[in-house]
Amino acid sequence: MEYFAIIIGAIFVNNIVLAQFLGICPYIGVSAKVSTSVGMSGAVLFVMTLATIVTFLIYNYVLEPFNITYLQTISYILVISSLVQMVEIILKKVSPELYQALGIFLPLITTNCAIMGVALLTIQNEFTLLQGVVFAISHAAGFALAIILFAGIREHMELMDLPKAMRGAPAALVVAGILALAFMGFAGLV
């Protein structure tokens, strides 16, 4: 029941993009095509889960016992950026196909505040490791849902005759606003 609440909450109610405003840069940046947004979602799922596990261990077994939690921000960002590098190198060697699919998105992920945000929220909510992992996976799923829906709409918008000033980012943001409005309907579900 508890896990169910975490999953529904993360995917629909507190959708990471549309309700919490995390990961907006890739959301606007790589959502022009459905295929690229699927790739980005895959990369986010992968890194977000790994980053949450590693930062959880660091917080609970290094920062907390030594009473240096004020180094949280600095250690998280270092861990996340080196993790991304490492994943890139390992993926290149182990699974070239996966690297082909996710490769170009990985460097973009370091500055994706969704990753760091979820890592910080896991600590803030005082989750256990397993809860944290479920939390991270559901948030990544929420990200995927939001960005793929959005990319689908944007592909159709390409064909529309919009006023010149609205083309590009402004229209995309207004559409995101309407999607956010739709997602507000999920509020209160859990």
Binding site: A165, M166, A169, P170, V174, I178, A180
Partner: peptide, 22 residues
């Protein structure tokens, strides 16, 4: 209220981008 909530943020920003481009 919608402007204080999430949708208002996106829509408000969309129109401010138009203003700044102008």
């Amino acid at each position: 209220l919608v402007f204080v909530l999430a949708p208002g943020a996106f829509i408000g920003m969309g129109y401010l981008i138009i203003l700044f481009n102008y």
